[in-house]
């Protein structure tokens, strides 16, 4: 693939690379941040990267099943955020902070 065509036209390549980069940013956020809420946001970033992959494949393979899967992923993500935030509120009620370190010594 010659270097010129990388900037001339957009192909499936570009979308997949962008999606991989967003996924990595989200993964770094999950591993590095302390605040539980920001960790949940990073998980959302990773899910969005996967959504982008599905939509790009759906467009370039001319197949609509990918978009259905994106629909499902969005629903699951919303549910996951609801549960995660409920847990965060429960943690905040006990410790007055939402650090991930409080999860190290959970019991009962």
């Amino acid at each position: 693939m010659p270097e010129i065509s990388l900037f001339k036209e957009v192909s499936l390549h570009h979308y997949l690379i962008l999606s991989a980069l967003i996924f990595s940013i989200g993964m770094i956020g999950v591993m590095m941040r302390k605040n539980l809420i920001v960790i949940l946001m990073s998980i959302e970033l990773m899910l969005n990267a996967v959504n982008l992959t599905f939509v790009a494949f759906s467009y370039y393979l001319n197949h609509l099943d990918g978009q259905i899967l994106v629909f499902f992923i969005m629903t699951i993500a919303a549910a996951e955020v609801a549960v995660g935030l409920a847990i965060a509120i429960a943690i905040f009620k006990k410790f007055k902070k939402v650090d991930i370190h409080f999860f190290e010594r959970l019991k009962g």
Binding site: M41, E44, N48, A56, V70, F71, M74, A77, V81, L85
Partner: peptide, 22 residues
Amino acid sequence: LQAYFIATVQLIVYAGAVMVLF
């Protein structure tokens, strides 16, 4: 990418509902 329905749902559900929850 011409996924119009998904784009609208992304705007409503993610940028609207989920982020308001956050």
